Simulated assay, not measured.
Amino acid sequence: MKALVLSGGTGTRLRPLTHSLPKQLIPLAGRPVVAHVLDSVRDLGVRETGIVVTDGGEQIEQALGDGSRSGLSLTYFRQDTPRGFGHALSLARDFLGDDDFVVYRGDTLVTESIADRAAAFAAERPAAGVVVPEAAPDVELVHFFTPAVHEAVAALAADRPGDAVTPAGAAQWLRAHGGDVRTGTYTGYWRRIASAEDVLAAHRTLLDGLAPAMDGDVDAQSRITGHVVIEPGAKVVRSWIEGPAVVSAGALVEESHIGPHATIGRDCSVHGTHVDDSLVLEGATVSPVGRLHGSLIGRFAHVSAAGRDGAPRRSLVVGDHARVEVAE
């Protein structure tokens, strides 16, 4: 079995952050969304994986490489604009050959294993298998297909030229034409990442399962409580890190309160601020703004106070390289 990961969404509801950062690369608990998706693929025993990308695809390829670091073999396919599953399938046709395959969305987090569904599909080989959440059976999370899907997609494309063919539509066509399509339920946590609220909710869930690791430099005047990761090269000075929280490699946290449910990205600098339920991405600087809560701060952004410290909490979504002064 092979895998096809659809990572071509534009993330319009996450702008301005996604003007320069594909939403599939937003880090959750220190790792991109799509990396968590690839964990799910690898859990099925699948190694050969195609990733369909659009704008920002070069950033995804740079972040993931050839997949060898994750125990996978990755092949990339580029769409000029999101064109749906049917077009993605045509790009990956030679790669997929006559193999069965599983389809994941690159922006959908599925935290628990569906290896049992994959094993059942491989043993029984219906034309298609659909995995839906037990609490939301109208949402199709994952699809398994035999090569019969190629006929379905071709027929749908011929019937409705210009319409985007979806995995759900292909499965419905197969069922309507006598194919065996089976549905299995998923009882674990899942989240489709479409908005800032989705990012923060998924981030909280992943941080709640955090395994603590103290590899950075924490001075004697700082306090660490709960499950906290301090990565190598990070420095914590006169601060309270309240888990679950991550302070990434190269970051400096000084005279601040970080957490709960906060990640400070690589090479960030945070001074005199309480950051909770938030993500501060790589290279960003935050200096004293009182409290940031429920915020997404883009890469290399600068957020500072225009007046006195000690302001009430604020929620911000700030794009890459932005400069923001918060009025008191």
Rank of each mutant, 00 (worst) to 15 (best):
M1W: 06
M1R: 02
V5F: 06
L6D: 11
L6M: 15
G8R: 07
T10Y: 05
L14W: 06
L14E: 10
P16Q: 10
L17H: 12
T18D: 01
I26R: 02
V34A: 01
R42Y: 08
D43S: 08
L44Q: 09
G45I: 14
V46D: 03
V46Q: 11
I51Q: 05
V52L: 01
T54L: 00
T54V: 02
D55G: 08
I60D: 07
I60G: 07
G65Q: 12
D66M: 05
G67V: 04
S68D: 05
S68H: 01
S68T: 10
R69F: 09
G71H: 03
Y76T: 11
F77T: 15
R83A: 13
H87C: 11
A88S: 14
A88Y: 09
R105F: 08
D107Y: 12
L109F: 13
T111Y: 08
T111R: 07
T111H: 06
S113M: 08
A115T: 14
D116P: 02
F121Y: 09
A122V: 11
A123G: 08
G129C: 12
V132Y: 07
P133H: 10
V139K: 03
V139G: 04
E140G: 05
H143W: 07
T146P: 00
P147G: 13
V149N: 02
A154W: 13
A155C: 10
R160W: 08
P161L: 12
D163V: 15
T166H: 10
A168L: 14
G169N: 01
G169M: 05
A171T: 12
A171Q: 04
R175V: 08
A176T: 08
Y186P: 06
T187S: 13
A194I: 06
E197Y: 14
V199L: 06
L200A: 12
H203C: 00
D208C: 06
V218D: 04
D219F: 10
A220Q: 14
T225F: 04
V228G: 00
V229R: 07
I230F: 12
P232D: 04
P232H: 13
G233S: 10
K235W: 04
V237I: 15
W240A: 12
G243Y: 11
A249Y: 04
G250N: 14
L252P: 00
E254Q: 05
E255S: 14
I258P: 01
G259L: 03
P260K: 09
T263Q: 03
I264H: 00
G265T: 07
D267I: 10
V270S: 00
V270G: 06
D277Q: 14
S278T: 09
L281Q: 09
L281I: 05
E282I: 03
G283M: 06
A284L: 12
S287G: 02
P288C: 15
V289E: 10
V289Y: 02
R291W: 12
R291F: 03
H293T: 07
V303L: 06
A305E: 06
A306D: 09
P312H: 11
P312Y: 13
R313I: 01
R314Y: 06
R314S: 14
S315K: 03
V317Y: 05
V318D: 01
D320A: 15
